[in-house]
Design a protein around this nucleic acid. Structure first.
Lengths: 102, 102
DNA sequence: TTTGTATTTCGTAGAATAACGAAACAAAAG
DNA sequence: CTTTTGTTTCGTTATTCTACGAAATACAAA
C-alpha cells in the first residue's frame, strides 16, 4: 500500500460527497419526499409516478443516495421501504450548517 | 419555442445547482477559504499553493463557482479578487436549511 | 410449480466533468 | 515597445454520470 498525501480535510471530502448526492433534481425530489415523511418512509414505486424517469433510473438514484448514506432501504417483499438515514441526515445537516456559517 | 413540461420545482432545480457547485473537494476548500475571509476576499493565487491542482484547473473551479453564483470576482490587475457572493450565499444557506429541516 | 409484482442489475450510449500544459490576455513596470 | 506577472481560455484525454430498456432477481400468490 502506497501512502497517498491527503490534500483536503476529511470534512471537506465528506461535504463534497454529501453535496454530490444532492446535486441532481431527481435526488433532491427524493430527499424532499422522504424527509417530509420521515417516520412513514415509502416505497420506490410511490415516487415513480411523480417524476419523469424510468423506474430503473429512479432505482439508480436511490442507490446513489444509499451509497452516500443519506437514505436506507428495508426489504419488505415485494416492496422495498426507503427512508431517511437519520444519523447521517443529521450529520449532513450539521456539516452544511457549519459550512455556511464559518 | 416549444413548451417543456417542468417536472421538478424551481427550488429543487436550484438546490441541485448549488449542491453541484459544492460537490468537489477543491470547491469546498475554496468556499471554506473565502467564507472564512468573508470581508477580506482573496486572490486566485493565494489558494494555488495550498491545493494540489494546476492553476488552470483552479481557475476552472473558480469559474464554476462564479457561474453558480456563490462567488464573485473583482478585477484588480494584475490580480483578481474573489469573494463570496453574499446574497446568493445566504440564499443557498437558507435553502439548505429549509431542505434539511423539512 | 407457474405466474405475477416490485425492484434492481446489466449493457450501452451520449453528455458532462475534471485534469493538464500550452497558448492567450490584460495591465503594469521597465 | 518589450517584458513580466497573474490569470484565463483552449485543446485534449480520461473518467464519471445519466438515461434507457431488457434481463435478472426475489418473494407471494395461485
Amino acid at each position: 500500500m502506497i501512502a497517498v498525501k491527503k490534500y483536503y480535510t476529511e470534512s471537506q471530502e465528506k461535504m463534497a460527497r454529501y453535496a454530490k448526492a444532492i446535486a441532481h433534481p431527481a435526488r433532491v425530489y427524493i430527499l424532499d419526499f422522504l424527509a417530509g415523511n420521515i417516520d412513514k418512509c415509502c416505497y420506490s414505486g410511490d415516487m415513480a409516478e411523480d417524476i419523469p424517469i424510468a423506474r430503473s433510473t429512479l432505482s439508480e438514484h436511490l442507490k446513489a443516495l444509499k451509497e452516500a448514506g443519506l437514505i436506507q432501504g428495508e426489504i419488505n417483499p415485494p416492496y422495498i421501504k426507503y427512508c431517511i438515514n437519520k444519523e447521517n441526515w443529521e450529520e449532513a445537516r450539521d456539516m452544511f450548517d457549519g459550512f455556511f456559517r464559518k
